[in-house]
Amino acid sequence: MEPQTSQTITVTVNGETYEREVEARRLLIHFIRDDLDLTGSHVGCDTGNCGACSVIYNGQLVKSCMLLAVQADGARIETVEGLAPEDGKLHALQQSFSDHHALQCGYCTPGMLMSAKALLDANPSASEEEIRKGLQGNICRCTGYWNIIDAVKAVAR
């Protein structure tokens, strides 16, 4: 029997359910970006260090370059595109990032926002030290992090 090289998966992303046939070796980030055309999540490295591809997977923060798309079969995924409520307003974290100039080029921002959201979902009153720890899996090359930490701190209760 030929080895199976592709598989049909069903994934719910930002509340919408998609059924797609994917190559077994396709990374989740490429599935999200290329197959679903949700290009907010980014790729910044090939080793799982940078966090630009961070998404929330069944309530847990993951780096989507470290998972295969087939592993997401049946999963519920949140990406930056699903962060803002639908009334045209921004999520509190998005607004705070803008207020604090916590982004420049914006490339790390979607992953950074998802990390911050996962952190505050689990620990709404995170301290500065906990915020630093919570964001250490995300690299930003523009801001030096100071404003990012301030932005998250402002949203933490």
């Binding site: 290009t39 907010g40 790729v43 930056v80 962060l83 803002a84 998005q94 803008s98």
Partner: peptide
């Protein structure tokens, strides 16, 4: 910021 915090930027890829 409005587009970038929503993942609506357009980078070449």
């Amino acid at each position: 910021d409005k587009r970038l915090v929503q993942g609506q930027g357009v980078y070449f890829d």
